[in-house]
Design a protein around this nucleic acid. Structure first.
Lengths: 343, 343
DNA sequence: TCCGATACTACAAACGATTGCGGCGGAACC
DNA sequence: GGTTCCGCCGCAATCGTTTGTAGTATCGGA
């Protein structure tokens, strides 16, 4: 029966008050202006009619849409599921809805999505697009709308960012290997133009010297992209330069799995001749043969924190820009072990 | 400089026409009413001012929000990434945005999300929530808004649904095994209350007799849930009842991987002693040891088709209810092979 | 009795667009 | 030359809210 929405006018008529009084009565922040018994009468009428404010009308007047945009580089990447879930869980709590944008059509796609979102008057924006620099459109957008970066940051830290602590994460991997007794450790890095690519590489070199090993840039081989194939290629290049490596820290799980192939093609045994660590700990890694030791990044938490700081920004609280680092953990599995004795 | 949005009024003033004329000039479907040179003048003014219609104002008047809701049972499940991507890709093309709802908080959560979406006046709804029956809220919702089901259907086919052709998919697996020479084939089924669980089980039995094998319900073991552990449990139960099975068709990839463990724990070799097929072909299966032969469902396509029929529904074209079946393919890998010779 | 303060409530103008309808020209026709 | 018609444009109502301002009681105090 209630297929036709009841409007504020209906509620007002039902309660025998003027529409504006009804509006104030229903709004908690203005309810004190109207007489308590009137408030109750209006509330009763609203309940009876099943009144729901029209979000468009309200948004038009108040200039808020109660929606935020989330721009993801690739929805099909399992990595982003938890982030989205985290974001969604806290925003829904506060009555916001989540507009999702999938920027899988090249580098400029994200920008056009940002513009779409702005046109829709989202109250906030969460960007997970890669890259260390931020486009002009995005920077422009920051003036018009609250904005938070997730799983990435910008070089000048001008936008609040929630990121995994890559330095700590790589540290977990390197120290783990060091404690197992490894001394010749290499790194298969991600592309340098991606913030995580460069960051993890730097962290690797830094930790190498921290644990008392040689921090040679020559121990690093950059993969063209975060995928299995480039991982194999890079690992092969690395292992041909340094045949004596006993361990490889990969900048990403897929790169790590790429290393599997490289190591196998050389007739060596993973976890015995060459230990391998991944990064991100995506699903199913534990079912690999051997299961991949990997740095686990709290992605869901990342989404939660991003949404929380976005809400703070929207509320006008001043959030310090700069990045918030989330601590990773290490899932130790069977792709890592003590180095094999050289006979 | 254009931080402040220009409105239709500005455009009208700039072009020296009335606001209503400007409106008509800018709207392709009404532009023929106004003089061509005026149209051009208005268009020029709009371009100059960077005018963008205010979606809320427009939506308030036209009763359309140009947004559709997509409700997913679990965003973290990699399965739904491609569906979302497919949906998004076609909707964005037509100027719609996608509101995402993650129904991971129990069975009633989906309903409350549907209500949220309705309150927001979405123009359409795409449901991917599981279950063979549809809740009353959803059924109610169908009156108020266009609605399409994806990756699921309802028993009475009262709502248009885009689903994978499970019968054909199971057929691919069974026939593949049969052609390899298997004669004792079992099935690890999904939960019966899920539409895919029951459907694939029925398909399995049907195909068994089609290929000339015994279609015994005793060859089926139902797993409690689509996960690895329940898969192992079910497979163990099945193999203890029928130690002579040479192949298992799993209702799901994770169940298939669960079978791996069961087979291994019995000291048998996968793909030799016991062949296994999965269903869905989720990422990384090709990197498993052995790589899992699996029925591949065109999930992205599913999203695309769902969105397309939703657009048709919204446009008022009458779409025949009932289900559209998408044909799966078979990714043959190394978990299947000819049955080992006995004795 | 009258005044001013207090406590509500009503009026009406926004927000930015769409759209039915009426008006006003000029051309065509009788 | 008057009527009709048509092409083009402006007027104003409308969608459902929020909110500044004006109005009306009621009450206390002088």
């Amino acid at each position: 029966m209630s297929s036709i929405r009841s409007t504020l006018k209906d509620v007002a008529r039902e309660a025998g008050v003027h529409i504006s009084t009804a509006s104030r009565a229903l709004n908690p922040s203005t309810a004190f202006i109207v007489h308590p018994v009137t408030v109750e009468r209006v509330a009763e009428a609203a309940r009876k009619l099943g009144y729901r404010p029209h979000p468009l009308a309200r948004g038009l007047r108040t200039n808020r849409t109660m929606s935020v945009g989330v721009i993801i580089p690739d929805v099909e990447n399992p990595l982003f599921g938890p982030i989205i879930a985290g974001v969604e869980s806290v925003l829904v709590e506060d009555g916001y809805s989540v507009l999702i944008g999938n920027a899988d059509r090249g580098p400029n796609h994200a920008d056009s999505l940002v513009e779409d979102m702005l046109e829709r008057h989202v109250d906030g924006l969460i960007l997970a697009t890669p890259g260390r620099v931020v486009s002009d459109t995005a920077r422009q957008a920051q003036r018009d709308v609250s904005m938070v970066l997730v799983n990435r940051s910008v070089d000048d830290d001008s936008i609040p960012a929630i990121v995994g602590d890559d330095h700590a994460g790589i540290g977990l991997a390197v120290r783990h290997l060091r404690e197992l007794g490894h001394e010749r450790i290499g790194h298969v890095a991600g592309p340098e133009w991606v913030s995580t690519g460069r960051g993890r590489r730097d962290a690797f070199l830094a930790w190498m010297s921290t644990v008392g090993l040689e921090a040679d840039i020559d121990l690093v081989e950059e993969a063209e992209w975060y995928q299995v194939e480039p991982g194999t290629t890079a690992a092969l290049a690395l292992l041909s330069r340094h045949p004596d490596l006993t361990a490889i820290v990969a900048a990403n799980d897929l790169l790590g799995l790429g290393c599997y192939r490289a190591v196998r093609s050389l007739g060596k045994v993973i976890g015995v001749d060459v230990s391998i660590t991944g990064y991100n700990d995506m699903p199913l890694l534990d079912l690999m043969q051997p299961s991949l030791t990997a740095v686990r990044v709290p992605y869901r938490r990342m989404g939660v924190d991003a949404a929380t700081t976005l809400l703070a920004l929207i509320a006008g609280e001043d959030v310090s820009p700069g990045r918030v680092l989330l601590s990773p953990t290490l899932a130790i599995r069977s792709s890592t072990g003590p180095p094999a004795d050289r006979g």
